[in-house]
């Protein structure tokens, strides 16, 4: 049986179709499920091995990106989520999904789940930006999704609130020491290089983090936007493999849960 992925939808989340397609291409049985169907108990999180929270503009980003959606999860589904995490299952989040998990305190959770330790706030430019960025993967990270990725990743960012800011020095130190910083913004040569390579002014160029187990991952760029070579902005001029770089992340997830660990 194919491993099952739940793609959360509703209230303005909007990269659900391509995220579903990414998980399907990776070999999962992916289902789009509305938040309220989880809250009502029509669909049970227990029946899935993977949860993906898409990008978008949940609740229009009012009161801050991801804030209200996080509050809804906290009010209605927190126990179910904790149970999911404790069952060795996987959670993926990009962009708005990442903001949601950060504001819910599920990421980075250096000292336990449930307390917000970092934030994703307005880009230094004060603008929404759609721009492709290079990401360097931390080889020491425990993140399941980025396993065996040694080259730079190239994905688009599409956000106005993506600047990663830790609460204090201690949180940043913990993130670095635990190798929870999974991806950082770099230039085409793999070096940190400021704007526009770092499109939002993120502290320490942080683009994505995982929880201490490596099973919960969030990043601002959109891997689900690069499933095929034809999504790449320069596919008409560069030699690229048929498979888009984003797919590898979902394949890693499917491989992990298929290996029996997370089932």
């Amino acid at each position: 049986m194919k491993p099952k992925a739940l793609i959360l939808t509703g209230y303005g989340l909007n990269t659900d179709y391509e995220l579903q397609h990414g998980f399907e291409l990776a070999g999962a049985d992916a289902k789009r499920v509305h938040l309220n169907d989880l809250i009502d108990g029509r669909v049970n999180l227990k029946d899935f091995q993977m949860l993906a929270i898409p990008g978008g503009f949940a609740f229009a980003d009012d009161l801050g990106g991801g804030k209200i959606f996080a509050q809804r999860l906290k009010s209605h589904l927190y126990d179910a989520l904790m149970e999911f995490v404790e069952s060795d299952k996987l959670i993926f989040s990009a962009c708005n999904g990442f903001q949601i998990l950060v504001k819910l305190g599920m990421l980075p959770a250096t000292s336990g789940y449930g307390e917000q330790e970092v934030t994703l706030t307005f880009n230094d430019s004060g603008r929404f930006e759609n721009r492709w960025v290079y990401l360097k993967v931390n080889p020491k990270s425990k993140c399941i999704f980025t396993r065996d990725i040694h080259s730079l990743l190239y994905f688009p960012v599409r956000h106005g609130e993506g600047k990663f800011v830790p609460r204090d020095e201690q949180v940043l130190r913990d993130l670095q020491e635990n190798n929870q910083i999974v991806t950082t913004y770099v230039n085409a040569d793999g070096e940190p290089d400021g704007f526009p390579w770092n499109p939002n002014g993120s502290i320490a160029d942080v683009a994505g983090v995982c929880d201490p187990t490596g099973r919960i991952f969030g990043l601002m760029p959109h891997p689900e936007a690069f499933l095929y070579r034809y999504n790449h902005p320069r596919w008409t001029r560069e030699n690229l493999p048929e498979e888009g770089q984003g797919l590898k992340l979902f394949k890693n997830a499917v491989a992990y849960v298929s290996s029996g660990v997370g089932v």
Binding site: N14, T15, Y17, E18, H21, G55, R127, F128, E129, N130, R131, P156, R158, H222, E224, A225, L227, Y230, N231, P233, R234, T236, R237
Partner: peptide, 18 residues
């Protein structure tokens, strides 16, 4: 750049290229 021109993952030729 201030318009999301790629959401839904369907973008093959984007408004900016090269």
């Amino acid at each position: 750049r201030q318009y999301d021109h790629e959401v839904q993952g369907t973008s093959i030729i984007k408004p900016l290229t090269g």
